Simulated scan of single mutants.
Amino acid sequence: MADMTVSAARSRLADVIDDSRAHRAPVFLTRRGRRVAAVIDAEDLERLTEAAEDLADIKAAQAARAALAEKGAVPWDGVKAEVGLA
């Protein structure tokens, strides 16, 4: 049960949720043949969200390292002046 219309899911929502949790796979809801939403196990969503946040942090760290390698370090006095603490 990978795809299901929204109206069909509405009439058997508990079954859709149970199926998604039991198979650890999303059930995609469609409208006019297009996927518009998905029912996914809450624990799976939390794991996916954490993984996406970790990847975003890794990319930000890589960008910061690249900027440091390209431009060099900023002196502490310069940082303080930039934020108005000098």
Rank of each mutant, 00 (worst) to 15 (best):
A22Y: 03
A51P: 00
I17C: 13
S7K: 15
L13P: 13
A8R: 15
R65M: 09
V74H: 03
R32P: 15
L45G: 06
R24A: 02
V79M: 01
A81P: 01
A2V: 14
A8E: 15
S20W: 04
A25G: 09
A52C: 06
K80P: 06
R35Y: 04
G78Y: 06
L85P: 11
T30M: 04
T49E: 06
K80T: 01
R21W: 03
V74T: 08
A63Y: 00
L85F: 10
E53W: 02
D57R: 13
A14F: 10
S20T: 15
R65Y: 00
R24E: 12
A38E: 13
L45M: 12
E70D: 13
V6E: 08
T30Q: 13
G78V: 00
A42K: 13
A42T: 09
P75N: 01
K80R: 12
A86L: 04
M4Y: 07
R12N: 11
A63S: 10
A60G: 04
P26K: 03
L29C: 00
K59E: 03
A67G: 09
L13G: 08
R24Q: 12
A38G: 01
A86I: 02
I17Y: 11
V39K: 01
Q62W: 05
T49W: 06
A8Y: 14
K71M: 01
A86Y: 06
G78A: 07
S11D: 10
R34W: 06
G84N: 03
E50N: 14
E43R: 14
I58Q: 03
K80S: 07
D41M: 04
D54K: 12
V36H: 05
A69R: 11
R10E: 03
T5K: 07
A8F: 14
L68V: 14
L48C: 05
A86H: 08
A37L: 02
R32D: 11
E50C: 04
A2G: 12
A73Y: 13
A73S: 12
V79G: 02
G72A: 02
T30H: 05
V6D: 00
P75W: 02
A42F: 07
P26Q: 00
A56L: 03
D44L: 11
G33M: 03
A37C: 02
A51C: 02
A25S: 14
R35Q: 08
L68E: 07
A38P: 03
D19C: 02
S11L: 13
A22H: 12
K71I: 10
D19Y: 11
V27T: 02
V36P: 15
R24W: 00
A64L: 13
R12D: 08
A2K: 14
R10V: 05
S11A: 10
A69D: 12
A81F: 04
L55Y: 10
